[in-house]
Structures are given as structure tokens and as C-alpha cells.
């Protein structure tokens, strides 16, 4: 029943490992966009402007309520109709970055809400400016409770990179599929893809937990 061929496995492994680089690059770039944009989305909901808050909230709801793969298709295939002609990589990064920014903004929002009101009041009583208050007082305290959620989404974005294969980004899944189409053998490439994902996800999750503990120690919170 099992027809596992080791010679074939060793043949395709270098190609898959090369594609893993693209997967990591896509996850890393997408996550970097999401981390920064997500913070902007979270902070935008805290400005005095009601209208801005409402628009941002609705946008986040919209992104969270529709599938990622639809958003990827939308940016790549519908974008050109609005004069937005993007390479698969650029379109993919925008779509996945935006998607995870929406989720991360909710993580940040929870972290920001967890900072006691008294911290804001102390900052006001010391006459700190709004930006100082955020960057010196509030965000350092909002970070530790956000780290677990941020870590989950880092693993999440990594596991979602195969969706980029639908618009032709040559990441792991795309490469495995290509190997399958060329050779009519799917068992080895897809099994290897699974193993590679597992081998990268598990240590990442563990690393995040260590990082979280380190940050809490660093900030004097234990």
C-alpha cells in the first residue's frame, strides 16, 4: 500500500528546502507588515475621532469575516481593474499582511485595555505628552499580555503561507504541487511539506514562550 521512494525523496528535498526559504520570507514579511499595521489600527481606534474609530472597526470586522484566500484573489485579480497591477509577491504580502494586521490589532487592543487607568492618570500628572505616554508608559505594559496572542498569529501566518500558492508565489506548497504535477508523485512532496512545517512550527511556539518570559523579566514584571 505504501509506495514510498527514498531516492525520489532525496531528489526533491533540495528543491523543497529552497522553497522553504520563500515560505519563511513570505511569513516574515507578512508578519512584519501585520505587526506594524496592526498597531496602527489599534491606536487609530483610540483617537478622539469617532468617525475614524468607526471606519477602522468596520474594516477590521470585514477583513476578519472574509476568507484570506478571497482577499488574496481580490488584491491580485481585482486590483488591476483599479489600476493596481501587482506581482504575486507584492499582492500576496499586502493581502496576508492586512489580514493578520486585523487580527493583531485585536490582540493589541486587549493588551492596551489591560493597562490600568491609573497609569494614564500618572502619565497625565507628570505632564507626559500623548506620544511619550504611549511609547514609554502604555505600550511597554501592553506588550507582555499581547505576546502570547502575537506568537499564535506568527505560527498562524506561517501556516497560511500556502494560500499564496493560488496566485503563483513559489513557496513550499506551490513547489510541492509543481513536483507532483511533473512526476505524478504526491506522497513524498506533500509529506515532506508537512514535516517541514511541523519542524518549524514547534520550535517557534516554544521560542515564543521563552521570549515572553524573558520580556516579562526584562520589564521587571515578575
Amino acid at each position: 500500500m505504501f509506495d514510498w521512494r527514498w531516492d525520489f525523496t532525496w531528489d526533491i528535498l533540495p528543491r523543497l528546502i529552497a522553497a522553504t526559504g520563500n515560505t519563511l520570507l513570505a511569513a516574515g514579511l507578512g508578519y512584519a507588515i501585520a505587526v506594524v499595521l496592526g498597531l496602527a489600527l489599534a491606536l487609530a481606534q483610540r483617537t478622539p475621532s469617532r468617525a475614524l474609530t468607526l471606519v477602522v472597526r468596520e474594516a477590521i470586522e470585514f477583513i476578519r469575516s472574509t476568507p484570506l484566500v478571497l482577499q488574496i484573489f481580490f488584491v491580485f485579480y481585482v486590483g488591476p481593474q483599479f489600476g493596481l497591477r501587482l506581482s504575486p509577491w507584492t499582492a500576496g504580502m499586502i493581502a496576508i499582511g492586512l489580514h493578520y494586521a486585523a487580527y493583531l490589532s485585536e490582540v493589541y487592543r486587549g493588551g492596551l485595555d489591560s493597562v490600568p487607568k491609573g497609569q494614564w492618570e500618572a502619565a497625565t500628572s507628570l505632564n507626559l505628552s500623548t506620544s511619550r505616554t504611549y511609547f514609554r508608559v502604555i505600550l511597554p505594559q501592553a506588550l507582555p499580555p499581547s505576546l502570547a496572542g502575537m506568537g499564535n498569529y506568527l505560527v498562524g501566518i506561517f501556516k497560511d503561507t500556502p494560500m499564496l500558492s493560488v496566485i503563483g508565489v513559489a513557496e513550499l506548497m506551490h513547489t510541492a504541487n509543481a513536483i507532483g504535477s511533473e512526476t505524478y508523485r504526491f506522497l513524498e512532496p506533500f509529506t515532506l511539506v508537512g514535516i517541514i512545517f511541523l519542524a518549524l512550527s514547534l520550535p517557534t511556539a516554544a521560542g515564543i514562550r521563552l521570549f515572553e518570559a524573558w520580556v516579562r523579566r526584562k520589564l521587571g514584571m515578575v
Binding site: G118, Q119, E121, A122, T124, S125, V137, Q141, L219, M221
Partner: peptide, 22 residues
């Protein structure tokens, strides 16, 4: 507000020290 507030300091019931600073 910031200019006039600079003349005032306050201590709180719950201290409200910044926990991540010494």
C-alpha cells in the same frame, strides 16, 4: 492645559508607579 498643568503634581491612592521602571 500642558503649560498650566506643569504647576501641579499628584499622588494617588494606588500609587500608580510605572511597573516596568525602577
Amino acid at each position: 492645559l500642558r503649560r498650566i498643568r506643569a504647576k501641579i503634581g499628584m499622588c494617588f491612592q494606588q500609587f500608580n508607579l510605572f511597573p516596568h521602571m525602577t
